[in-house]
Nucleic acid binder design. Sequence first.
DNA 1: GCGGCACATCGATGGCTGTCAATGTTCTGG
DNA 2: CCAGAACATTGACAGCCATCGATGTGCCGC
Lengths: 115, 115
Amino acid sequence: MDVKPIEVCCAPMLTTALSEADAEDLAAAFKVLADPARLRLLSLIASQDEACACDLVEPIGRSQPTVSHHLAVLTDAGLLEREKRGKWAYYRAVPGCLAVLRDVLGSPSLTTTGA
Amino acid sequence: MDVKPIEVCCAPMLTTALSEADAEDLAAAFKVLADPARLRLLSLIASQDEACACDLVEPIGRSQPTVSHHLAVLTDAGLLEREKRGKWAYYRAVPGCLAVLRDVLGSPSLTTTGA
DNA sequence: GCGGCACATCGATGGCTGTCAATGTTCTGG
DNA sequence: CCAGAACATTGACAGCCATCGATGTGCCGC
């Protein structure tokens, strides 16, 4: 997918109009999350402390190369960290990375129906 | 794009593993945001109170059919409301819709590096 | 009603990407 | 060394989607 790290790039999008460049970066970031297999991988890994790649293939229900591909995309985006131990690869969720996207979606007071 | 309305579908994804069905719904929601033109449209409309479609074609820099297509996708997803007045179409951001996605990305305490 | 404007829809097309089989690479045990 | 396991990479393919030109559909002014 040719992914770049997710970074702070702009103010909350509901209050300030996005520039073309910021919109490109943001769209690329959301594209990483726009796949069921990647969402499940990220969710699975984050709900544990860390996870070995060998334990992720079966629950996701895709081939080993496909899982490896998605893990690479998530890692390139900065959402996961990879640590090799012997012949195994352990993945861990990077805290704070999703917060960037949360903040772009606006403050709670602005996105809540109540106000 | 064959879009369905964005709805609450699951607990925060960093604490509980997503089911296959929830992951599909969530991925579809993020896919709506995974396009620069749609992000800019949503941002433009939300930063004003409302916007006429005729004023959106030029700043986005795409053809009129393309802009109309993206507005339809955003409306189908529940992110925009359309109101026709005479031959014009006015769009307005739906408050609270993005909050659903915000919540899925986790609570601030969980996604912040500090804790 | 007739031309024209605003907007939506249709059809076609090019590029992107998720998927898998096959293969490469690195590590382990013997 | 060698066989095998775990994981990454490559190549190929199918499906999806953003984009545009052309056309359709209401609405307005004259």
